[in-house]
Write a protein that binds this DNA or RNA. Sequence first.
DNA 1: CTGTTAGCGCGTTCAG
DNA 2: CTGAACGCGCTAACAG
Lengths: 348, 348
Amino acid sequence: MSKKTTIYDIAKELNITAATVSRALNNNPKISSKTKELVFETAKKMNYEQNKLALALKSGKSYNVGVIVPRIDSNFFSSVIRGIEEELYPAGYHVIICQTHDQEELEIKNINSLLNAQVDGVLMSISNGKLEENDSFNRLLEKNVPLIFFDRKKEINNVSSVTIDDFNGAYMATKHLIDQGCKRIAHLSNNRKLEIFRNRYLGYKQAILDNGLEFDENLIEEIQSKVLEGRSTVKRFLEMDRPPDAIFSSSDFTALSAVQEIKAHGLKIPEDICVVGFSNEPFTRFMELSITSVDQSPKEMGKIAAQVFLEEVKNSKKIKSEKHVVLTPELIIRKSSLKILKNKKAKI
Amino acid sequence: MSKKTTIYDIAKELNITAATVSRALNNNPKISSKTKELVFETAKKMNYEQNKLALALKSGKSYNVGVIVPRIDSNFFSSVIRGIEEELYPAGYHVIICQTHDQEELEIKNINSLLNAQVDGVLMSISNGKLEENDSFNRLLEKNVPLIFFDRKKEINNVSSVTIDDFNGAYMATKHLIDQGCKRIAHLSNNRKLEIFRNRYLGYKQAILDNGLEFDENLIEEIQSKVLEGRSTVKRFLEMDRPPDAIFSSSDFTALSAVQEIKAHGLKIPEDICVVGFSNEPFTRFMELSITSVDQSPKEMGKIAAQVFLEEVKNSKKIKSEKHVVLTPELIIRKSSLKILKNKKAKI
DNA sequence: CTGTTAGCGCGTTCAG
DNA sequence: CTGAACGCGCTAACAG
């Protein structure tokens, strides 16, 4: 109701200029401490609050940062966001969260909207599209809007990224299955045009080869990470002449569907077949049959992505240089893959 | 890199005034269609894009709307948000999502931040705090920022809300358990200072009383909706002299913990004890032992909340009037409570 | 140390 | 139908 008080109001109150008030409020050293005090006092008294919009117009900065993720209802992404928030709020930034639902058109729309909202930067995990000639990234770069990828990245000049070592995570997971005595390990993959899934595939493959197991293309399938779609693939696996004795999934959600399908077939986990997922979603721990998974320290990832952004903003004048942070994944071993007791160090 | 083109640039290009350009762009009827065409053409040619910040400063509108939820990694809230987005994006608004993590201090901080960001409205589901003398809501109202509650609301003058009929949802769920032959139905409640949990409690109670069952206070416990906290309570229930034969939980997450604890005790679901949750989170469907739950049509809820907001903005001059939309919940019956085959209509 | 002036980009009178 | 001028709230440049 009551009109917002501006620096002019408090200037009039004190018989000084708005400029002086502005300087005082910004702690400009050229202002006498007396007037500063006075200004701060009456500012408080009059319930003054800085108009961010005017500041934004003037400075060209909106203090808004866009975060684009495939979806927010996976613990991985919501945790990354949490990390970003924790780092960015104290720095005075706001976070605008957008979802692509893995649709490229939405991704482009989101980028345009954020550009339109004059965001100071964009932190994103790219969507699962064809990705061939999507130039929306370039539009960001043209406008000099810092862009930082996390998790799902793409190689672009001058664009920094924060990821985990997906190759190694997959390698560890597969090696663990091999250590458990598994000989035919299937892999539920995902769109391998995305680096993360390609790297998980490669890590899996390397572990197979390094350990003298047979590498069988038939045991690999590229599916969407939807719970239901995974089941048919697993069904096919189980009905093979030589079915797998383990499944390494590049997603916890497909790992879940694998568990369901395996049980439906009357097989036992981990006795008949072991299962390992990826992401360490909370449900993998809470299930009665807990699922082994690879943790990606998502909150940490978000924090670091935010830090990289803040640095880029600070050094905006200097020549941009890419920064690529790679976090180390951790294998969380649970029931779904634990055939052998830890201390036995069995050798099959 | 290249300076953004403004209406001045395109004015100079055409030897007219910025004002004319502005009017043309806004389809002001007083502009000749010829100049309009011309303006639109060159605007496109010069890659003109409206500076929202300037517009915001001028109009006092930021075209940003704040959405505050306890957390985003529950399907319920992320679906509500999805609904809000679908309604608000086409109207030119952006959505800033904030999480309270059920901490009142964060709630207050979020409101202040949003206020600071000059949002045009706030849609929120209140947090699980003491809630006694929290005046941050009033600060919104004082500044005439439309506030709309969804799901978790609070009675405040001039504040609209969108909720489901929690009483009835709980009543239906409890009645269903009674129809299944259950006689001692426990209730996992939650902070009953929040209307939703109070109403679910009341619906449960009413169903018990209406059907001549014994209402036993010992079978009710007010817990946080954390998976782990629930287990100890269920443990206590199961170790009673006369343990319950059903559990109605006001949250799917505690329902999940109940299932785990019951299984750990070697009891069978639904034969020995039935379980019903609330919210219809996806995992209730995907679990091997699927859980009966009450669906809250979250996306619909989000859409309606957004519509109510848009209306309030449109009629900002008129006297504000509260609007309270109450959606009808739906009981989704699954394995965890299905003792009796549907068609038998048994009567115990 | 502080006042004056100007401009960020837009919409909106008020004239013509 | 269109131009000139102003103001939104703030900061930065230039004076003094």
